[in-house]
Write a protein that binds this DNA or RNA. Structure first.
Lengths: 206, 206
DNA sequence: TAGAATACATACCGGTCGGTATGCTCGTCA
DNA sequence: TGACGAGCATACCGACCGGTATGTATTCTA
């Protein structure tokens, strides 16, 4: 096993475990064990658990970014893009086979780390901002195509969407109720974006 | 100091500390120290940390319930009730003097406890449901007074509101940006509830 | 007023935490 | 071919975790 393989295995394993529970309750030992790497190996590649988490955040975002770039591809209409995003969230964040529903592990981690772990919060802020930026581009596309009501502030709408999605995922986790999330998510986002009613559920994800 | 005083001090101290950070990172020792109670005292009153958290949840909800009952008082118009709730959230969840913004400690705790701590999730679900019930009564009042657009499913709207509020609080915490939350919260809720536009920001909290 | 129950205080337990010190084993390059 | 650093493995550290065992005042009760 090469060096960068080991690194990536630690990163992806950490991601997996943190998604399953959360930052503070996933120990370095557990990550190492699951990844088949010893502690010496871990601390050869990462100087601390917090740094691992930061790098894992980047690692995660890079993979999501690829998906997002595909979802938001200009080859799709703006309405298709919207449905793509909603379907993507329901597909990836909510695993049907696993009965427990993780909120976005990263943003809920923002509520966990102590204030000393400033770097972590910084990484989360960046990812949050990047995510909102994608939403913003979507909102502008929708507005440009005339799908939104007039009085919609684009920046606000992009934030609303992001904020709501975080909230509904937590709700889903607490209630362990996947179908409810599936049911609530689209309409709530339509409302927050000010999507004209005749376009609700009007497109299929590609 | 009487026995029930000690109990309540442990509960309220635990609440305070958990609000400031989170369930898993607040230790029993810290709670005891802050409350001026020894560990023996703690385990005399509570059989475990998890049980304390459950009781603290009830304790918290009882105090919130009082406020809610006042906010939702029929002596206020439905629009006033709505503004009361929004103002209440901004006032209590977001402390101006403290620059860090806690998400709702309890619901974010739902993403923290392991699956073995089933009792905790149960307590959170109950509180969540109770909270949604208050929202529902508000939605019905607003609808009865003709403030909402026609196509609003009441149960859905009540959930949307609850879900969004959790999300925006987490967003505020990650970004440490109180004014943004203050700005976003009302309009987003108006949209989710389907409040007719002419009534936005039309009432003052009482 | 004896005694039992309550309400703690003190000391300590095994386990786990994040992190480290040290040594070994390779491939690389002079 | 031999020195050297990258890439680990092993063993271990002190701090802290939730929880317990046991002793001791105080209060209630009979």
């Amino acid at each position: 096993m090469s060096a960068i393989e080991t690194r990536e295995r630690l990163l992806s394993t950490a991601l997996e475990l943190i998604w399953q529970s959360n930052y503070s309750s996933v120990g370095v030992n557990e990550i190492c064990k699951q990844a088949g790497v010893t502690k010496g190996g871990f601390y050869h590649h990462f100087e601390s658990k917090a740094q691992l988490f930061c790098e894992a955040t980047d690692y995660y975002w890079k993979s999501v970014k690829k998906d997002f770039d595909a979802l938001f591809s200009p080859s799709n209409s703006s309405l298709e893009q919207l449905e793509n995003v909603l379907a993507f969230i329901l597909r990836t964040k909510l695993d049907e086979e696993n009965d427990d529903i993780p909120g976005c592990a990263f943003f809920s981690a923002g509520t966990q780390c102590g204030n000393n772990e400033e770097k972590i919060q910084e990484a989360l802020r960046e990812m949050s901002n990047a995510s909102v930026r994608y939403n913003l581009s979507l909102v502008r596309a929708l507005a440009g195509d005339g799908y939104l009501e007039d009085n919609v502030d684009h920046e606000r709408a992009a934030r609303y969407m992001h904020q709501y999605i975080q909230g509904v995922l937590i709700y889903g986790k607490v209630h362990r109720n996947l179908p409810l999330v599936r049911d609530d998510l689209p309409e709530a986002v339509y409302r927050l974006l000010g999507l004209k009613r005749e376009y609700w559920f009007s497109a299929k994800p590609t």
